[in-house]
Amino acid sequence: MSLLEVDDDVVVRFGGVTAVDHASFTAGTGLVTGLIGPNGAGKTTCFNVISGLLRPAKGTVRFHGRDVTSTPVHRRAKRGMGRTFQRLEAFGSLSVRDNVRAAVDINRGLGGLLTPGHRSQAARVDALLDRVGLTHYAAERADAIPTGTARLLELARCLAADPALLLLDEPSSGLNESETEAFGVLLRELAADGRGVLMVEHDMDLVMSVCDTIHALDFGRVIASGAPAEIRGDAAVQRAYLGKADVGQVA
């Protein structure tokens, strides 16, 4: 049993378009799993199904071995699922620190909301900001920071709940080269803490160097799964990325 199982051929349709077409894959504890594929391959739709923002037409999502396909979004979060968004969903009119504080507050639950915060709370917020390297952005408004930084902020927010599974949607886009490198190290650490990380990512250097397993999607279908080296050499993947022509020449 893996931490997350997208099983029984998940299908999502929007009008006449099939966004996810009989997809099944898994993500395990302690591993960084990559979800790659060309634009429009259905990666973000998969994330929406996993995190509960979308109900699939068919298929099952299992988390910790339990069927969560019809569990509401917030309850999946409580069971240890955290996600970031491709189109930023930072709380734009709050400061960076308050974004993380809000996440910590939500995690404390209703009782926590009505009691004043403790000093340990502030320390927890500081630690989270420090972990993703946002300490010196703490006082900025969240809609005034660069995209890459806002993605790190979303990650810090997720970590407030100490989730067992992190769903990261294009976490490195907007980061520069050295930031991306540091982010790769952070990803390995997060997995080493005993978390599962599933990420949609376009930066192939990052994907190939950080992921333990990769699932490649193309028009809603899983066309290949395996270790980075296998994926890189896979003809179907190259076809998906480069088009049909001249595959031989590339490989």
Binding site: D203, M204, D205, M208, R232, Y241, L242
Partner: peptide
Amino acid sequence: MVDVILGGAA
């Protein structure tokens, strides 16, 4: 182009 699209490793 191959470098740019699939990453330098490819």
